[in-house]
Nucleic acid binder design. Structure first.
Lengths: 151, 151
DNA sequence: ACAGATCGTTCCCTAAGGGAACTCACGAGT
DNA sequence: ACTCGTGAGTTCCCTTAGGGAACGATCTGT
């Protein structure tokens, strides 16, 4: 449909969207994260068109978020796995899930729960400052131009 | 283009994507967050088509993420502001920015910096467990079915 | 030989995005 | 009174991306 490329913008949010901003991409990552990692199973789980799934997987592999691995030689069979780069995107998925749980509940409660292995509790993510570990949300920050800002 | 609706899926990530998953929506939120809050200025800043901007703003207002406020009566003029629901989506933007800074740098460093007011340091967000405050990332959790899981 | 599984391609159709021109309501300058 | 400028959208046409379903390739088990 003649879509504007986000990758060249001077904005880390836009550059992230360039990688996973297209429809379906985050859901594909979610599936791979929870172990639905083969073409047909992702297709069946999401109900995505096979054509689009092909395109998305190819792009996600190209950008280094997913890795395509042959798990069986003679009928060549492939599975997809998160790279380190992709694993860090799961942060994003967990924040999305937390927001959806809070603001887009259909009345039945959360579809999935996350248990934090370190403390054993069913929990959710919270954003903290990487420096002082105090909460860090929209109102707690000032936005400043950085070194990569547009001239 | 005949797009699958995500809102009815049994998945909080999909339901979040239903609200801000379309191209441009996160960037519109970012603009409003940093104070670019009027139609023409958003349009100029992003280079988005006016038609699509109209649609996105309408949807974001409908879903309660943005609020449309008349700030001047006689030539009726409007501005957009984040609601509480929208303000919590900024969490998502900050995580996107952190990922983009780390994995999609163009070599010039981050375009913007976030200064945490509580400690005064230029910092970034980190995900912690809402229960025990220890780090909580992809490998630190078990995914369990919740009460709203598909039957 | 034939069904079955896996992983895609190819085709057509519809609808969404891009871009530019147009509208409408007002306010200011001369 | 007339023109110019501005904010906030609308409307129109064109291209392209997504949906859906059929088709293809490759190997296994029986």
């Amino acid at each position: 449909m003649q879509r504007t490329r986000f990758g060249d913008m001077t904005c880390s949010i836009a550059r992230t969207l360039d990688v996973i901003g297209e429809p379906w991409s985050p859901l594909i990552l979610r599936d791979v994260w929870v172990g639905i990692d083969r073409f047909d199973r992702i297709q069946a789980d999401l109900g995505i068109s096979r054509k689009v799934l092909t395109q998305r997987l190819k792009w996600l592999v190209e950008t280094g978020v997913l890795e395509r691995r042959q798990y069986d030689a003679h009928p060549p069979r492939y599975e997809y796995a998160l790279t380190d780069k992709g694993t860090e995107l799961v942060d994003l998925l967990m924040v999305m899930a937390a927001w959806g749980d809070r603001w887009a509940d259909d009345g039945n409660g959360p579809p999935v729960l996350l248990r934090h292995r370190a403390c054993g509790e069913v929990s959710r993510v919270d954003l903290r400052c990487a420096h002082c570990a105090a909460p860090m949300h929209a109102g707690d920050v000032d936005v400043l131009p950085g070194p990569g800002a547009a001239s």
